[in-house]
């Protein structure tokens, strides 16, 4: 089963539009949704949770149409972390626990307090006294404490220092050890996604430019550096993006469209995305 299924989804906001979006996340996997600011990542998450209304297409979350009445129950199984934690500033960890206990049927108090301890969050400290990192950690603790089967994280690691980011990425990774647990994580910090994702989707100006298994992406694309004259021999269909350095050209190429005599280097996900986003302008 797919944890997330979006078929031909469209949404327009003035001049910005999500066009014919097709996105799937197989159960048990982590999908990284990458895109520049304003690419439509948060809108996509809003569409998934039916907080934003689609104009066309079909959306299923954990096998349930998100416009159906049953979707209200599905929300119980989805842990959400938004780009900021929007808790009222006078609440503390204990208050959040009490509120969530009456919000989620499967709320696990012990798990929540265990995460608070692990994250070094004082239970009595008011939310307004938290650092940005602590706020995000509180939101993550909430998302992980109601036996969610799907985690949706919208820029959950942005604004955190590298050590905390690493710690949190490990937790997300651990979450998917249970085979029916899945994660959708949106970020513009591609290195984070590269560490944990099974699939990478790249949203550029509202359009899904790629949606591929991470390993396959690296099998498909590679980096080729050639002199300007030699570069002219490379078939255009094999080139996904070019950077002209003056003396030589660095190209993102499709490996299978080139003969084996070229030395093609491994491309990082960030490189692939940058090339695909900016094509020949890079």
């Amino acid at each position: 089963m797919n944890a997330i299924e979006m078929k031909h989804v469209s949404k327009t906001y003035g001049s910005f539009a999500i066009k014919d979006l097709n996105l799937t996340l197989p159960e048990g996997c982590i999908l990284g949704l990458v895109g520049e600011n304003g690419a439509g990542k948060s809108t996509t998450i809003g569409l998934l949770m039916h907080a934003v209304l689609k104009e066309a297409g079909e959306i299923k979350v954990l096998g349930v149409d998100n416009t159906s009445k049953e979707f209200q129950d599905v929300r119980e199984d989805v842990g959400i972390v938004l780009d900021e934690a929007y808790f009222p500033e006078v609440l503390n960890g204990r208050d959040v626990n009490k509120i969530m206990k009456y919000t989620y049927k499967n709320w696990e108090e012990e798990t929540f307090f265990r995460y608070l301890t692990q994250f070094g969050i004082e239970r009595q400290k008011m939310f307004k006294e938290y650092s940005k990192g602590m706020k995000m950690k509180l939101a993550i603790a909430v998302a992980l404490s109601h036996r969610a089967r799907l985690l949706i994280l919208d820029e959950a690691t942005s604004g955190l220092d590298p050590i905390v980011r690493d710690e949190i990425l490990d937790i997300f990774n651990e979450f998917t050890r249970e085979e029916n647990h899945s994660v959708l994580i949106s970020s513009h910090i591609v290195s984070d996604l590269e560490k944990i994702c099974d699939y990478v989707a790249f949203l550029h100006q509202g359009t899904l430019v790629l949606h591929e298994e991470k390993d396959r992406l690296q099998e498909t694309y590679g980096i080729l550096r050639l002199g300007r004259k030699e570069a002219e021999d490379i078939p255009k269909e094999a080139i996904a993006g070019v950077r002209d350095n003056g003396y030589y050209k660095e190209m993102l190429v499709k490996r299978r469209l080139l003969p084996g005599n070229y030395t093609i280097e491994r491309a990082g996900i960030e490189e692939i995305i940058l090339y695909l986003a900016r094509g020949e302008q890079i």
């Binding site: 949770m49 907080a51 929300r75 900021e84 808790f87 949706i152």
Partner: peptide, 18 residues
């Protein structure tokens, strides 16, 4: 007013609240 200040509504619409 406090909901609006903390933007709680954005989070609540993702929770099991219709």
């Amino acid at each position: 007013a406090y909901d609006e200040r903390s933007r709680w509504g954005q989070m609540a619409e993702m929770m099991p609240y219709s």
